[in-house]
Nucleic acid binder design. Structure first.
Lengths: 355, 355
DNA sequence: TTGTAAGCGTTATCAG
DNA sequence: CTGATAACGCTTACAA
């Protein structure tokens, strides 16, 4: 019927005071204690299987050696590597990670953040923030970083990807294959990746002097296959006058390709498709996705470093928060191909046939 | 410079004692307090944005409304849906989830479990346990369930899949396609899935009177693509006299298919391959994997229910712990095919050519 | 180098 | 119905 051993238990056995035990056990203060006692205390602690009660320490210090990670949905394959990156950095420093999903719901996000704050997390990594975020300023004085995403106003440090460069690479690639009429399945502009990938597409479309046709741009309400399908349907209902589709992420691209197939259009033969993220296994899909590779694990890793910095330097918030932009890389695979040279584009012909 | 509001703050404002505030705020005890005070307290709490300090409560009650999930690697696609299942059940009940990876390392697992126990988790969901597990009995009196895996001795409730049935389905399927010489890339027998899938293979191989050839069985040291590749190399170095390979999971199968391709063998034309788990996107791979679908999300969901039961009924340890076996389903896709009818098998011919 | 004592925020027990 | 009080396990001035 023994409950967990406490410092008093150890103190009792060794014959010293709890505070001595506390000091002996803490690497930062154990030099204040005579080596013999430190040894003795360590020994007894080990024998009893002592584990400091985090609640006691947390109550006293207002720190919990716990950080929170908030993601829209852990089931989206881009997040696990990021989470792993955070965990690898933090667990080495003795931090535990509490995880929550929001499904992109703002109210839910507020709830889970509140629940984490109630648990005195020492920091928060948010992969769920909106571009115009109202939540972060309300968090107060616990360090926050955003990862994969950022906010319009630089209210917290962030780790993001070079979206602009990624889109430019994808577009340049398509153009180099002879594509001119390129559709864009864009992400939700309410979150930074959606916004900036769309903006980059428009910018480079202009710079590359590609034709402007508003029908070729469709906005998804989320980054998933289902939305990819819906947007592809919308696109095809508007026009079939395109030879390539640039998608704001891989899951959208997957949905798009499904719909193309359903309409009797082949990818890449009839329509080239690009994604973004290089999600795990994207190279094994049929067709293998041409996409922009981002460093998911690295992003989590860097976010954790940022968080540790902020936690350990205290609230020394001077100047703008850090903004780490990770480089990206185009990965050319099977979903893109030289445009069919002869007019009329196969797209149009096949679509007509499919109807 | 305001720190987080506490119950005393509320008590001060409302003009009652902290204990009254505590009672008023707790749904279980608020009926003891006059409705007006309950209302008033609730109001002030809301206005201040009060959040109970979990550390205080935890210190007092020895419960934290937190549970731990331990997985080998969150980056393995089978785990996120399971984790999501756990989270969905628990977060609704106000529990937070702390997550840790072990990479299958026993010492690491002991560490993270200890770290979670130090944080007074109310329960533990382990997807990282070994078949002969020494850790669980040492955990003491906090409820544990294993998920995806079980232990030889039923030391904790578990949620597992009907491995035996799954393997039987896969094998029956291959046999119905005319395959007789079927290799098995088995998982590590140190964990229950590896062991029971291998055992099921042997059992049904005998029952179906398939030829016994020890060269056709190779054991992986882990459930990943790299091990799949290594085992396929080993297999091919031993013999090429088989027409199908049953793999203990999808990631092994993916690795196996890579190696086959490298050797100039096509899947499924030359060799049929089956996986296990139906990991996310397995149907989009090339070739689309024929595999055994398991209910990953459901497993997490059930595990969480089991944990809640155990937590809320207290240590009512009577009889054997629950063992939930979830049904599985064969999903036939593109990686299996009728065996080439004419001898000699193409396998042998192509392999010779490849050398 | 070690002991003392206070207190972190909450809840449970006991009075009133 | 409400208040007083103690205690959970730990850290940290401060005192010795």
């Amino acid at each position: 019927m023994r409950s967990r051993p406490t410092m008093s238990d150890i103190a009792g056995i060794v014959g010293v005071h709890v505070s001595t035990v506390s000091r002996a056990l803490d690497p930062k203060t154990c030099h204040l204690i005579s080596p013999e006692i430190v040894a003795k205390v360590g020994e007894v602690a080990a024998k009893l299987g002592f584990r400091p009660n985090a609640a006691g320490a947390s109550l006293r210090t207002n720190r919990s050696r716990t950080i929170g990670i908030v993601v829209p949905d852990i089931t989206d394959p881009v997040f696990p590597p990021m989470i792993r990156g955070v965990e690898d950095v933090l667990s080495e420093r003795g931090y535990a990670v509490v995880l929550a999903n929001t499904d992109g719901d703002e109210a839910r996000e507020a709830e889970v953040v509140a629940s984490m704050l109630a648990r005195s997390v020492d920091g928060l990594a948010l992969a769920s923030s909106r571009y115009e975020d109202k939540l972060i300023p309300r968090i107060g004085d616990v360090p926050v970083v955003t990862v994969f995403r950022e906010t319009t106003k630089p209210v917290a440090p962030c780790v993001v990807f070079d979206e602009n460069c990624g889109i430019r690479h994808a577009l340049t690639h398509l153009v180099s294959l002879g594509h001119r009429r390129i559709a864009n399945i864009a992400g939700p502009r309410t979150i930074s990746t959606g916004y900036s990938r769309w903006e980059a597409f428009e910018r480079h479309r202009r710079e590359m002097k590609l034709p402007l046709d508003k029908r070729l741009v469709v906005f998804a309400d989320g980054f998933n296959e289902q939305e990819g399908e819906r947007c592809a349907e919308t696109l095809l209902a508007r026009t079939s006058d395109f030879t390539a589709i640039l998608c704001a992420n891989d899951r959208l691209a997957v949905g798009v390709i499904d719909v193309l197939k359903r309409y009797g259009l082949r990818c890449p033969d009839d329509v080239s498709v690009t994604g973004f993220n290089d999600m795990p296994y994207a190279g094994r899909f049929v067709p293998a996705l041409t996409t922009v590779r981002v460093q998911q694990y690295k992003a989590g890793w860097e976010a954790a470093r940022l968080l540790l910095d902020a936690i350990e330097t205290g609230p020394g918030r001077r100047g703008k928060p850090a903004r780490i932009v990770l480089p990206v890389e185009l990965v050319v695979r099977g979903s893109t191909q030289q445009v069919a040279s002869k007019a009329p584009p196969r797209t149009r012909r096949r679509l007509a046939a499919a109807r």
